[in-house]
Design a binder for these strands. Structure first.
Lengths: 203, 203
DNA sequence: CATTTTTTTTAACAATCGTTAAATTTTACT
DNA sequence: AGTAAAATTTAACGATTGTTAAAAAAAATG
């Protein structure tokens, strides 16, 4: 029942399982009880595809947790939109810095499919942080997020675009199945045309 | 006198100043006092150039704060070492996930120049975290780091290697002046040969 | 100061990517 | 189902990058 709460803050960034970096945090009973205390703060909502949940430059006031559906984050560059991350069922989504410090977001948050979410206001998360166990838990999740992000970033330093696509295929097949190719291309740092060629090579 | 403490956790990642994301956290008197309480936990040390402070795969037990000198982080890929970040005077350096969770580090930490550092044990940082003000402060810095990292990552999605080099030249001239080119090339995601060509174009 | 050693540059060629444009396929909508 | 719109693929060409190897420059060493 607390399953979705357990996943919060765990899944921003890539969810690639890696034996070298096992997920070590253990949810103990006191923490579960503490989190349960704040369960009432979460609201829910439902959005059609291509709904902007947060506009680039706006301040992020809500953190979303996906019940069902698919979300991407993107930013504008010379008139083209560049997607940089994708989220699915069980993932928590927010423009982290904007949400935590109430500053303009460098990127937008937008649904891809019809999406049902839980959401939590920034001020309510601040309230949750008053609880030491919850605060430590959130801090740990932030570290996990950063580590996941670093691993994703590494592939840009060491792999070719083709290898990055193959990694995506192997580790996050959901992305290839549910996300339009034009979004995936910019996520991999290449053009749609180039991604098409890579796909033709692999078949 | 507390200048270097103030900078801790602020400087991992790029330090690019950006009016769009001003650095908002304000150091208040109670926090300064709290940090001063833990000042005695820091030791100091000095290392020659090319000294490994942390080996890839080892557990990071110390966080370093640079008094004087220059440090890089790197990892091995097919026999070649790939640098991904550079640190200078005032910066704090640690393999964040490894340091906080005591798991193997995905990358190494190594001096470039002769380097004088302060350092702090992981368990002592845990002790500092018991203090709520310090804990909130460290949490804020972690968010800042992630935001800086995301902005750096964005340049891989939207810019060409040449633009990334020009950005480095404009925003972090120290890197070009003090870091060997072979390290900078891998940091930009290109080969040394390609970086040489880019430099020849610009002159 | 001369000589190794290392680092950086240059050259040549193959492979890959970006760009533009057209063709094809898929999806959305009435 | 038929039409319009959007997404994806393919083609052609120029630009950029990676690779290998050699040359030049810079740094380290005795």
């Amino acid at each position: 029942m607390l399953q979705w709460l357990l996943r919060i803050y765990e899944c921003i960034g890539n969810k690639k399982k890696n034996n070298f970096y096992p997920y070590l945090s253990i949810m103990n009973q006191p923490l579960k009880l503490a989190l349960k205390q704040f369960q009432h703060l979460w609201k829910h909502d439902s959005f059609p595809p291509k709904t902007l949940l947060l506009k680039e430059g706006d301040i992020c006031r809500k953190m979303y947790h996906i019940k069902k559906g698919c979300i991407r984050t993107w930013f504008n560059h010379d008139g083209k939109d560049i997607s940089f991350q994708f989220f699915f069922e069980g993932d928590a989504v927010a423009s982290v810095e904007s949400f935590n410090k109430q500053v303009p977001s460098p990127y937008a948050i937008e649904t891809i499919e019809q999406t049902d979410v839980h959401w939590l206001l920034a001020e309510d998360l601040q309230q949750m942080r008053q609880h030491p166990l919850v605060n430590t838990f959130l801090m740990d999740r932030a570290i996990d997020r950063q580590a996941a992000f670093i691993r994703h970033f590494f592939s840009f330093l060491k792999d070719t675009p083709k290898q990055r696509y193959e990694n995506l295929l192997a580790n996050r097949p959901q992305v290839i199945q549910r996300v339009p190719l034009q979004y995936i291309a910019s996520h991999l740092g290449i053009t749609q045309v180039s991604l098409s060629r890579i796909r033709a090579q692999i078949k």
